[in-house]
C-alpha cells in the first residue's frame, strides 16, 4: 500500500506565493473584464451595445445631447463579444479580474473616479484575522462553485489566510451567494441569512448573484441579490477566478485594498 503521507511530504509545498507575496498566482493567460477606451469610440457607434447579451453596455442620453455608452461591469458575463464587435478597439480584452467592490456604483464605468469609501472599515476590524463563510448556491451554473471549491485545493489553500467554509450559518460571519436567485431558492436563501448571528456580511459572487446574469428576466429567476439581501461586497465575473475571490475576501477583511473604482482598475 502506498505511503500517502510520505508521498505528500515529498511533493513539497505546492501553494502559490500570492497573495502573501508577489506572484502571478496561477492566473497566467486569464482574460478578465473588457477594458473601455472611450477616446477610441467612433461617432454614433453602437456595435458593442448591440453585441452585449446581458445589457451590460447600453446607450444612455448624454448630458450635452446625443447618446453615450454606459458600461456596467456588474452585468458583464466576460463573453468578450463587445471586444470582437468593436471596429475601433475601444473595448479590448484585458487581464483585469480584481473586480470586487463595496459599492455597486463602483462597477459602472465613470470618467473620473471618486475617492474610496471606507465607511465600513471600522466595523469589520474584529474579523481581520479570521472569517467563516456559509456559501449558498442560489441557482448558479456550477462554474462559481467549481472555482470556490478550488480555493481549498493545495494551490490556493485558503486556510492559510484564516478563511474557512462552515456548514452551519450559526457559525458564519459571511454569506457568500452565487447564482441569480431562483424562485425556489429565494426562501432557503433568506432563511440561511436569518439564521446567521450579527454582525453578518453578504458577498455576491459571480455576475448572476450581482445582477442576474444570463438567466435574468426569465420566469424562474430574479436579478441576483438585488432587492433580496443587503450586499457588502460585489464580485462580478463569469465565473470570477479563484484569485479574484481571494482578493474580494481579503478586501472585505480590510487586508487588501479595493482595486476597482468607477469600473476601472486603479493602483
Amino acid at each position: 500500500m502506498p505511503l500517502w503521507t510520505l508521498i505528500g511530504l515529498l511533493e513539497g509545498k505546492q501553494t502559490a506565493a500570492w497573495p502573501l507575496r508577489d506572484g502571478e498566482g496561477g492566473q497566467a493567460g486569464f482574460i478578465g473584464m473588457p477594458r473601455y477606451h472611450p477616446e477610441r469610440c467612433g461617432e454614433g457607434c453602437k456595435a458593442c451595445a448591440e453585441a452585449c447579451p446581458t445589457h451590460a453596455i447600453t446607450m444612455r442620453p448624454a448630458d450635452g445631447g446625443g447618446e453615450r455608452l454606459e458600461i456596467d461591469y456588474g452585468r458583464c458575463v466576460v463573453c468578450q463579444l463587445c471586444t470582437e464587435a468593436c471596429p475601433t478597439q475601444a473595448m479590448t480584452p484585458s487581464s483585469d479580474w480584481a473586480f470586487g467592490v463595496r459599492r455597486r456604483e463602483d462597477l459602472i464605468w465613470q470618467e473620473r473616479s471618486d475617492s474610496p469609501s471606507d465607511a465600513h472599515a471600522k466595523a469589520r476590524n474584529g474579523f481581520r484575522r479570521s472569517l467563516h463563510i456559509r456559501h449558498v448556491d442560489a441557482g448558479s451554473c456550477n462554474g462559481c462553485e467549481s472555482d470556490l471549491q478550488a480555493l481549498n485545493n493545495p494551490f490556493y489553500n485558503l486556510h492559510r489566510l484564516g478563511i474557512f467554509f462552515t456548514a452551519s450559518p450559526r457559525f458564519a460571519d459571511l454569506l457568500l451567494v452565487t447564482g441569480p436567485v431562483t424562485y425556489a431558492m429565494l426562501n432557503p436563501l433568506r432563511a440561511t441569512y436569518e439564521a446567521m448571528p450579527e454582525p453578518r456580511w453578504v458577498m455576491a459572487v459571480g455576475t448572476c448573484a450581482v445582477s442576474g446574469g444570463v438567466a435574468e428576466g426569465g420566469y424562474a429567476c430574479g436579478h441576483g441579490l438585488e432587492g433580496v439581501l443587503p450586499v457588502d461586497v460585489y464580485l462580478p465575473g463569469c465565473p470570477p477566478n479563484p484569485a479574484a475571490i481571494i482578493q474580494a475576501l481579503l478586501m472585505l477583511l480590510d487586508r487588501m485594498p479595493q482595486r476597482v473604482r468607477g469600473g476601472q482598475l486603479v493602483e
Binding site: 447579451p53 448558479s140 451554473c141 462553485e145 426569465g218
Partner: peptide, 28 residues
C-alpha cells in the same frame, strides 16, 4: 431548486449570441 428556465431564455435570440447562454447552462 436551481431551475432557472434556461431553455426559455434562448427564445428570440439570434444563433450566435445563444452560444453564450449555452456555455452558461452548466459551468463544468
Amino acid at each position: 431548486f436551481k431551475h432557472r428556465g434556461m431553455e426559455k431564455r434562448f427564445e428570440g435570440l439570434p444563433a450566435d449570441r445563444a452560444v453564450i447562454l449555452a456555455e452558461r447552462v452548466s459551468g463544468v
